[in-house]
Design a protein around this nucleic acid. Structure first.
Lengths: 187, 187
DNA sequence: TAACATTTGTGATGTTTGTCACACGTTAGA
DNA sequence: TCTAACGTGTGACAAACATCACAAATGTTA
């Protein structure tokens, strides 16, 4: 597991063994079973997660109890309720396992400490944050410019593996349409 | 103009006079008239802009020639086609003045240099990037969970000043509904 | 100020999507 | 292996929204 994290980071910055040990000391390694919650809405002291293996969904429950999938997160991705993580407030979203999942997690305190003690990591995290920002912009664009059918086709093209790992109800929730509409789109 | 940028940065990190001069040397100051383009789709070498005064729209034109407003940007905000800026590719979006606008702009080369020569600025930019990420997440949530009417009400609550400065056609484009639907929502 | 372009509201109509109901096959656990 | 929960497709209908057309109000420029 350590090796995967190291390779992931070293795609952007190079680390000595000592530096990587220092990095690692700021993380905890944890495992979760399918349907378990890494974050439950209302939780405080939200961590940020690097996903070694498995699949997660970040969900928002509206006032009618309907679940909306803000994003899926799979191997090699970083995920959190970033609003709660960065602003150090209660989680408004939940992060739940779709499959058994192994992660490294880091608290906001350790995130800040790590940036302070190892400048390279601040650089790494800036790159990651910028990538996250870009991914969000793309998703906004898809809502602005595309019909449900087009969003479906785009997702199928960009993340075909999701269609094997995630049921139709969740895909519909991610695309922002009802289960029934999605069913009619794909037939 | 310099003072505004300095105050903006010093909300997060403190700078000596020399440090601020160093920061400033990485930026250019520019002014644009209403309807002028800071970024035109297809442009290369996209800059990132800090807005001193004025109002901009970031737009995406779809294959049918329809304009979609990805975001508005006003005083004290940072804006760019971040996809093009960070990935150093051609702009797919345009950034256009709604009002006369003064900005500081920075190239990706200077952005990277500045991070390298002044660690504090890397910290500042990480904070800004995280804020941008959060703002995008909120916008995605509004598309997932809210009807056009609810998105309209939310915008009115969060940014009432926009309703004075921007016409209804643009508001509709930002909210992702037709001009006619918006008109019926607000009456 | 006259001529023209832009902005806005509103009716009529069609399309897209949501909601409710139900049937049927699959999966998971006792 | 039996049973209950879950996942999926589909019909009928309602609601939300887009599109087209047009008129009135407002803004802009020669």
């Amino acid at each position: 597991m350590h090796q995967k994290l190291r390779e992931h980071i070293e795609k952007i910055i190079l680390l000595t063994d000592d530096e990587f040990s220092l990095v690692l000391s700021h993380f905890n390694s944890r495992s979760f079973k399918k349907k378990e919650f890494l974050i439950d809405k209302g939780d405080t002291n939200i961590d940020c997660y690097y996903i070694v293996s498995g699949l997660l969904k970040l969900i928002y429950e509206d006032e009618n109890g309907n679940e909306h999938i803000v994003s899926f997160a799979m191997e090699d991705w970083w995920e959190s309720d970033f609003i709660a993580f960065f602003t150090q407030t209660n989680a408004t979203m939940s992060l739940q396992c779709i499959e058994d999942t192994d992660v490294f997690c880091i608290s906001i305190e350790n995130y800040q400490k790590l940036c302070a003690v190892l400048q390279k990591m601040e650089h790494f995290l800036l790159k990651k944050s910028n990538s996250g920002h870009i991914a969000s912009q793309r998703r906004i664009l898809s809502f602005l410019t595309s019909s449900a059918k087009d969003r479906y086709d785009l997702l199928l093209k960009q993340h075909p593996s999701l269609f094997q790992r995630v049921n139709k109800t969740m895909l519909a929730s991610y695309l922002g349409v009802s289960r029934e509409t999605l069913s009619r789109l794909s037939s």
